[in-house]
Design a binder for these strands. Structure first.
Lengths: 129, 129
DNA sequence: CTGAATCCCATTAGATACTG
DNA sequence: CAGTATCTAATGGGATTCAG
Protein backbone atom coordinates (compact mmCIF):
# COMPACT_ATOMS: atom_id res chain seq x y z
CA UNK A 1 0.00 0.00 0.00
CA UNK A 2 1.06 3.46 0.38
CA UNK A 3 1.58 4.76 3.85
CA UNK A 4 3.40 7.59 2.18
CA UNK A 5 0.38 8.44 0.07
CA UNK A 6 -1.99 8.26 3.00
CA UNK A 7 0.24 10.48 5.07
CA UNK A 8 0.49 12.99 2.26
CA UNK A 9 -3.28 13.23 2.05
CA UNK A 10 -3.60 13.55 5.81
CA UNK A 11 -1.06 16.37 5.81
CA UNK A 12 -2.91 18.14 3.04
CA UNK A 13 -6.14 17.94 5.00
CA UNK A 14 -4.44 19.26 8.10
CA UNK A 15 -3.10 22.15 6.08
CA UNK A 16 -6.61 23.06 4.96
CA UNK A 17 -6.14 21.74 1.44
CA UNK A 18 -9.68 20.62 0.77
CA UNK A 19 -8.98 20.20 -2.90
CA UNK A 20 -8.07 16.58 -2.56
CA UNK A 21 -11.40 14.82 -2.22
CA UNK A 22 -10.51 12.21 -4.79
CA UNK A 23 -7.13 11.60 -3.28
CA UNK A 24 -8.82 11.23 0.06
CA UNK A 25 -11.24 8.71 -1.37
CA UNK A 26 -8.51 6.75 -3.07
CA UNK A 27 -6.48 6.72 0.12
CA UNK A 28 -9.35 4.93 1.83
CA UNK A 29 -9.10 2.04 -0.59
CA UNK A 30 -5.46 1.94 -1.48
CA UNK A 31 -4.00 -1.27 -0.24
CA UNK A 32 -4.24 -4.56 -2.02
CA UNK A 33 -6.10 -6.31 0.72
CA UNK A 34 -8.51 -3.76 2.09
CA UNK A 35 -11.28 -4.66 -0.29
CA UNK A 36 -10.84 -8.31 0.62
CA UNK A 37 -10.86 -7.53 4.32
CA UNK A 38 -14.04 -5.52 3.98
CA UNK A 39 -15.55 -8.20 1.79
CA UNK A 40 -14.94 -10.78 4.49
CA UNK A 41 -16.44 -8.55 7.15
CA UNK A 42 -19.50 -7.89 5.01
CA UNK A 43 -20.15 -11.51 4.17
CA UNK A 44 -18.82 -13.43 7.12
CA UNK A 45 -19.33 -10.96 9.96
CA UNK A 46 -16.78 -9.93 12.57
CA UNK A 47 -13.56 -11.92 12.48
CA UNK A 48 -10.28 -12.25 14.29
CA UNK A 49 -6.72 -11.66 13.16
CA UNK A 50 -6.00 -15.27 12.31
CA UNK A 51 -9.12 -15.62 10.21
CA UNK A 52 -7.86 -12.90 7.91
CA UNK A 53 -4.40 -14.37 7.97
CA UNK A 54 -5.77 -17.71 6.76
CA UNK A 55 -8.11 -16.31 4.15
CA UNK A 56 -5.96 -13.61 2.63
CA UNK A 57 -3.68 -15.99 0.84
CA UNK A 58 -0.06 -15.08 1.16
CA UNK A 59 -0.42 -11.99 3.29
CA UNK A 60 2.19 -11.45 5.97
CA UNK A 61 1.34 -10.58 9.54
CA UNK A 62 3.00 -7.22 9.16
CA UNK A 63 1.03 -6.23 6.12
CA UNK A 64 -2.22 -7.51 7.57
CA UNK A 65 -1.57 -5.57 10.72
CA UNK A 66 -0.85 -2.42 8.73
CA UNK A 67 -3.98 -2.74 6.65
CA UNK A 68 -6.19 -3.36 9.65
CA UNK A 69 -4.69 -0.42 11.50
CA UNK A 70 -5.19 1.88 8.55
CA UNK A 71 -8.82 0.85 8.35
CA UNK A 72 -9.13 1.54 12.06
CA UNK A 73 -7.46 4.94 11.67
CA UNK A 74 -9.93 5.74 8.93
CA UNK A 75 -12.73 4.65 11.23
CA UNK A 76 -14.00 2.07 8.78
CA UNK A 77 -13.53 -0.79 11.21
CA UNK A 78 -12.92 -1.12 14.94
CA UNK A 79 -11.40 -3.74 17.16
CA UNK A 80 -12.36 -5.49 20.39
CA UNK A 81 -10.18 -7.73 22.50
CA UNK A 82 -11.28 -10.76 24.48
CA UNK A 83 -9.23 -12.81 26.88
CA UNK A 84 -9.50 -16.52 27.57
CA UNK A 85 -7.18 -16.70 30.51
CA UNK A 86 -4.08 -15.03 29.15
CA UNK A 87 -4.80 -15.80 25.52
CA UNK A 88 -6.01 -12.83 23.58
CA UNK A 89 -8.58 -13.05 20.85
CA UNK A 90 -9.59 -10.12 18.73
CA UNK A 91 -12.59 -9.23 16.73
CA UNK A 92 -12.66 -6.70 13.93
CA UNK A 93 -15.99 -5.23 12.90
CA UNK A 94 -17.37 -2.63 10.53
CA UNK A 95 -18.22 0.76 11.99
CA UNK A 96 -21.20 2.77 10.77
CA UNK A 97 -18.87 4.47 8.32
CA UNK A 98 -17.68 1.10 7.14
CA UNK A 99 -21.22 -0.12 6.70
CA UNK A 100 -21.97 2.87 4.51
CA UNK A 101 -19.45 1.42 2.10
CA UNK A 102 -21.28 -1.87 1.66
CA UNK A 103 -23.31 -0.91 -1.44
CA UNK A 104 -20.21 0.41 -3.14
CA UNK A 105 -18.16 -2.64 -2.31
CA UNK A 106 -20.91 -4.94 -3.52
CA UNK A 107 -21.16 -2.95 -6.75
CA UNK A 108 -17.42 -3.05 -7.14
CA UNK A 109 -17.37 -6.78 -6.64
CA UNK A 110 -20.20 -7.36 -9.10
CA UNK A 111 -18.40 -5.27 -11.66
CA UNK A 112 -15.19 -7.21 -11.11
CA UNK A 113 -16.89 -10.58 -11.47
CA UNK A 114 -18.62 -9.61 -14.69
CA UNK A 115 -15.48 -8.11 -16.08
CA UNK A 116 -13.50 -11.19 -15.20
CA UNK A 117 -16.03 -13.36 -17.02
CA UNK A 118 -15.68 -11.20 -20.12
CA UNK A 119 -11.91 -11.42 -19.97
CA UNK A 120 -12.06 -15.18 -19.59
CA UNK A 121 -14.46 -15.58 -22.49
CA UNK A 122 -12.14 -13.65 -24.76
CA UNK A 123 -9.22 -15.73 -23.58
CA UNK A 124 -11.09 -18.97 -24.20
CA UNK A 125 -12.22 -17.82 -27.62
CA UNK A 126 -8.68 -17.02 -28.62
CA UNK A 127 -7.32 -20.33 -27.42
CA UNK A 128 -10.06 -22.17 -29.33
CA UNK A 129 -8.95 -20.72 -32.65
CA UNK B 1 0.97 1.93 -8.44
CA UNK B 2 1.85 -1.62 -8.46
CA UNK B 3 2.95 -3.06 -11.73
CA UNK B 4 4.16 -5.94 -9.67
CA UNK B 5 0.73 -6.52 -8.19
CA UNK B 6 -0.98 -6.23 -11.55
CA UNK B 7 1.44 -8.67 -13.11
CA UNK B 8 0.92 -11.11 -10.29
CA UNK B 9 -2.82 -11.06 -10.85
CA UNK B 10 -2.39 -11.44 -14.60
CA UNK B 11 -0.14 -14.44 -14.06
CA UNK B 12 -2.65 -16.02 -11.72
CA UNK B 13 -5.38 -15.61 -14.29
CA UNK B 14 -3.20 -17.14 -16.97
CA UNK B 15 -2.55 -20.08 -14.70
CA UNK B 16 -6.26 -20.69 -14.33
CA UNK B 17 -6.42 -19.33 -10.81
CA UNK B 18 -9.91 -17.90 -10.89
CA UNK B 19 -9.94 -17.52 -7.16
CA UNK B 20 -8.72 -13.96 -7.28
CA UNK B 21 -11.74 -11.97 -8.37
CA UNK B 22 -11.25 -9.40 -5.67
CA UNK B 23 -7.59 -9.05 -6.42
CA UNK B 24 -8.49 -8.60 -10.05
CA UNK B 25 -10.97 -5.89 -9.16
CA UNK B 26 -8.51 -4.13 -6.91
CA UNK B 27 -5.85 -4.28 -9.59
CA UNK B 28 -8.15 -2.31 -11.87
CA UNK B 29 -8.19 0.59 -9.43
CA UNK B 30 -4.84 0.43 -7.77
CA UNK B 31 -2.88 3.46 -8.67
CA UNK B 32 -3.21 6.77 -6.92
CA UNK B 33 -4.29 8.66 -9.99
CA UNK B 34 -6.58 6.30 -11.84
CA UNK B 35 -9.71 7.43 -10.08
CA UNK B 36 -8.80 11.03 -10.84
CA UNK B 37 -8.10 10.24 -14.47
CA UNK B 38 -11.44 8.49 -14.83
CA UNK B 39 -13.17 11.29 -12.97
CA UNK B 40 -11.80 13.81 -15.44
CA UNK B 41 -12.89 11.69 -18.39
CA UNK B 42 -16.37 11.27 -16.95
CA UNK B 43 -16.90 14.94 -16.22
CA UNK B 44 -14.82 16.74 -18.82
CA UNK B 45 -14.94 14.29 -21.70
CA UNK B 46 -11.98 13.06 -23.76
CA UNK B 47 -8.70 14.77 -22.96
CA UNK B 48 -5.09 14.84 -24.07
CA UNK B 49 -1.93 13.97 -22.21
CA UNK B 50 -1.11 17.51 -21.20
CA UNK B 51 -4.57 18.12 -19.79
CA UNK B 52 -4.04 15.32 -17.32
CA UNK B 53 -0.53 16.53 -16.64
CA UNK B 54 -1.86 19.96 -15.70
CA UNK B 55 -4.78 18.78 -13.65
CA UNK B 56 -3.22 15.92 -11.73
CA UNK B 57 -1.16 18.11 -9.50
CA UNK B 58 2.36 16.90 -9.07
CA UNK B 59 2.21 13.85 -11.29
CA UNK B 60 5.27 13.15 -13.38
CA UNK B 61 5.09 12.35 -17.07
CA UNK B 62 6.41 8.90 -16.43
CA UNK B 63 3.82 8.02 -13.83
CA UNK B 64 1.02 9.54 -15.86
CA UNK B 65 2.13 7.55 -18.86
CA UNK B 66 2.17 4.36 -16.82
CA UNK B 67 -1.28 4.92 -15.39
CA UNK B 68 -2.77 5.70 -18.77
CA UNK B 69 -1.16 2.65 -20.31
CA UNK B 70 -2.41 0.40 -17.57
CA UNK B 71 -5.92 1.70 -18.09
CA UNK B 72 -5.51 1.02 -21.79
CA UNK B 73 -4.22 -2.48 -21.11
CA UNK B 74 -7.25 -3.09 -18.94
CA UNK B 75 -9.44 -1.79 -21.76
CA UNK B 76 -10.98 0.89 -19.60
CA UNK B 77 -9.81 3.71 -21.86
CA UNK B 78 -8.41 3.97 -25.37
CA UNK B 79 -6.25 6.47 -27.20
CA UNK B 80 -6.31 8.24 -30.53
CA UNK B 81 -3.52 10.26 -32.07
CA UNK B 82 -3.88 13.35 -34.23
CA UNK B 83 -1.15 15.20 -36.05
CA UNK B 84 -0.95 18.91 -36.77
CA UNK B 85 2.01 18.91 -39.05
CA UNK B 86 4.58 17.04 -37.00
CA UNK B 87 3.05 17.90 -33.66
CA UNK B 88 1.20 15.02 -32.11
CA UNK B 89 -1.95 15.45 -30.08
CA UNK B 90 -3.65 12.64 -28.24
CA UNK B 91 -7.09 12.00 -26.96
CA UNK B 92 -7.95 9.52 -24.27
CA UNK B 93 -11.52 8.31 -23.98
CA UNK B 94 -13.55 5.85 -21.98
CA UNK B 95 -14.32 2.51 -23.61
CA UNK B 96 -17.64 0.75 -23.07
CA UNK B 97 -16.01 -1.11 -20.21
CA UNK B 98 -14.84 2.17 -18.76
CA UNK B 99 -18.28 3.66 -19.07
CA UNK B 100 -19.70 0.74 -17.12
CA UNK B 101 -17.64 2.02 -14.22
CA UNK B 102 -19.27 5.43 -14.14
CA UNK B 103 -21.98 4.65 -11.57
CA UNK B 104 -19.42 3.11 -9.25
CA UNK B 105 -17.01 5.99 -9.58
CA UNK B 106 -19.77 8.50 -8.98
CA UNK B 107 -20.87 6.57 -5.90
CA UNK B 108 -17.30 6.39 -4.72
CA UNK B 109 -16.86 10.09 -5.16
CA UNK B 110 -20.10 10.90 -3.35
CA UNK B 111 -19.05 8.71 -0.50
CA UNK B 112 -15.67 10.40 -0.34
CA UNK B 113 -17.15 13.88 -0.30
CA UNK B 114 -19.59 13.06 2.45
CA UNK B 115 -16.94 11.32 4.47
CA UNK B 116 -14.59 14.24 4.07
CA UNK B 117 -17.27 16.61 5.33
CA UNK B 118 -17.75 14.44 8.42
CA UNK B 119 -14.03 14.38 9.05
CA UNK B 120 -13.81 18.14 8.70
CA UNK B 121 -16.71 18.73 11.05
CA UNK B 122 -15.08 16.62 13.72
CA UNK B 123 -11.82 18.46 13.21
CA UNK B 124 -13.52 21.85 13.46
CA UNK B 125 -15.43 20.78 16.56
CA UNK B 126 -12.22 19.68 18.25
CA UNK B 127 -10.41 22.88 17.39
CA UNK B 128 -13.31 24.95 18.74
CA UNK B 129 -13.00 23.42 22.19
C1' DC C 1 -2.85 -15.81 19.85
C1' DT C 2 -2.06 -11.15 18.39
C1' DG C 3 0.89 -7.98 16.79
C1' DA C 4 4.89 -4.60 17.02
C1' DA C 5 10.00 -3.91 15.74
C1' DT C 6 13.92 -4.75 12.87
C1' DC C 7 16.65 -5.84 8.91
C1' DC C 8 17.08 -6.31 3.99
C1' DC C 9 16.02 -6.46 -0.68
C1' DA C 10 12.54 -5.69 -4.57
C1' DT C 11 9.84 -2.20 -6.51
C1' DT C 12 8.39 2.39 -7.50
C1' DA C 13 8.62 7.39 -7.99
C1' DG C 14 11.04 11.57 -9.43
C1' DA C 15 14.37 14.21 -12.08
C1' DT C 16 16.63 14.79 -16.14
C1' DA C 17 17.75 14.20 -20.78
C1' DC C 18 16.40 12.66 -25.37
C1' DT C 19 13.25 11.47 -29.60
C1' DG C 20 9.58 11.56 -33.30
C1' DC D 1 3.07 17.80 -27.94
C1' DA D 2 3.57 13.26 -26.17
C1' DG D 3 6.01 10.42 -24.64
C1' DT D 4 10.52 7.01 -23.62
C1' DA D 5 15.17 5.95 -21.38
C1' DT D 6 18.07 6.06 -17.62
C1' DC D 7 19.77 6.78 -13.09
C1' DT D 8 19.08 7.44 -8.21
C1' DA D 9 16.57 7.97 -3.89
C1' DA D 10 12.63 6.76 -1.36
C1' DT D 11 9.11 3.10 -0.14
C1' DG D 12 7.02 -1.10 0.66
C1' DG D 13 6.93 -6.14 1.44
C1' DG D 14 8.74 -10.52 3.47
C1' DA D 15 11.10 -13.07 7.00
C1' DT D 16 12.45 -13.24 11.47
C1' DT D 17 12.47 -11.97 16.17
C1' DC D 18 10.42 -10.48 20.33
C1' DA D 19 6.53 -9.38 23.67
C1' DG D 20 1.99 -9.07 26.16
Amino acid sequence: MSDYFRNTVIKKLNNGDFDCTKEFTVSMFSGKHKLLILWILINNGPQGFSYFKKNLKGISKKVLSNQLNELIDDQIIFKQDFFTGKVRHTEYQLTAVGKSLIPIIVALNDWGENRLKQVMLVKKFNSDL
